[in-house]
Design a protein around this nucleic acid. Sequence first.
RNA 1: GGUGGGGUUCCCGAGUGGCCAAAGGGAACAGACUGUAAAUCUGUCGUCGAACGACUUCGGAGGUUCAAAUCCUCCCCCCACCA
Length: 427
Amino acid sequence: MNIYDELQWRGLINQVSDEDKVRTYLSGQGATMYCGFDPTAESLHIGNLVPLLCLARMKRAGHNPIFLLGGATGLIGDPSGKDKERELSRQEDVDARSEKIKAQVRRFFERNTGERPEITNNYIWTKDLTTIELLRDVGRYFTINWMLQKESVKGRLDREDVGISYTEFSYMVLQGYDYYHLFKTKGCRLQIGGGDQWGNITAGCELVRKKCAQEENTQEEVYALTFPLITTASGKKFGKSEKGAIYLSPDLTPPYAFYQFFINTDDRDVIRFLKLFTFLDQEEIAALERELAAAPHLRTAQKRLAEEVTRMVHGQPELDRVMAATEALFGGGTIKGVDPATLRAALETAPHCHYAPGTVPDLPQILLDLKLATSKGQARKDIQGGGVYINGERVDEDQDVAESDFMGGEVLIIRKGKKNYGLVTRG
RNA sequence: GGUGGGGUUCCCGAGUGGCCAAAGGGAACAGACUGUAAAUCUGUCGUCGAACGACUUCGGAGGUUCAAAUCCUCCCCCCACCA
């Protein structure tokens, strides 16, 4: 199956500049394509999983994917999909984030393709570009009229309360130049990206075409392909949970929380997500779909989705730990029956606090220390509402932590709501 | 630079001197029902406090007043049109 057709089946194709030509481009092997990632945070998040995974799919299909870190564009700020001007990041922050993301991308790619990824950074070729060069050699191929038509710009112009700075307005020029650069140096003819990147990507396509035609008198064509915006059935933006964005870095989102995020996928979304976020083939996904229809309460599809994605991002050993934790906490039976060491291991990534003997505070304070509540008042209300459990048993109002609640004299499990756990140790 | 319109609690957004910790919606959290799902219903949703209550908040700094998110002064920021 042509990788293009596979992408189509998975629902990964939103817009393509030229379907037939892209299919042809991808039909053999050794085609080159790239996707950019701006270092706006210390870590990529699950919204980046689609392009990340797509580049891995390309590698598996025998192509040459390139990861482009936006060391330069990250300093400018992409207006796409943003309804407000954003704060400019400091250079050293962007550099530091770029390094972290680079390491993250490498681990992900090696784990899922067995090969080293090709990673570059647009700062390399952008930093020495002079103003005059930028304006004369790049800027002149963009007309303002055309730029104003772009969704990312129009959205800002139409609004009454915000504008767009020249800085962000120029973003597409830089991104366009990246494409030109990668085309000239790597022969890259396909750029992929999120649905909001269509304008930026096509800006690059235009630039390549015009620049080659005018300066070298050659006719060159490069392509654009975007993924759909991932939506959820409930209409929420995908990738945000109660706790905020779900990051790929275990430091920002514990693997347990990561796994749980996928476990909680809505029935209506799970099959679509299996296609988008895993390497499972048509047959396997069809089987899971049948199981979902026959026995939705078993949530086989959700479990498989969570397993696959967690393994891809965090690796098998981490997945084993996380599944053990899930089994201990949700697998029926009482928590008291599980031995303290297992619990401790299971809740390794859950919030945790430790008190010296005799210094154990009252329950609301513990909830606050565990960050399971935002204030003592809120903690108290949660307790009153019957939402807090010690070792699996609901806490009554005014009840406090007793000596005997510490299993083995040292471990105590607190739960708020159905699935928020915290671990308290003593000694 | 000129003219006009704005900046309210996580977000949107009401509020033009006391009845305002501030309507309404969204998000979020908890409970019920369930399948660690969805939908629905209920409660909570500035901080502290068991509670009467106390304290802090409406771009910033001053001021008027018994009393200010609301009035005045200066400053900062955003938007539109004009130059």
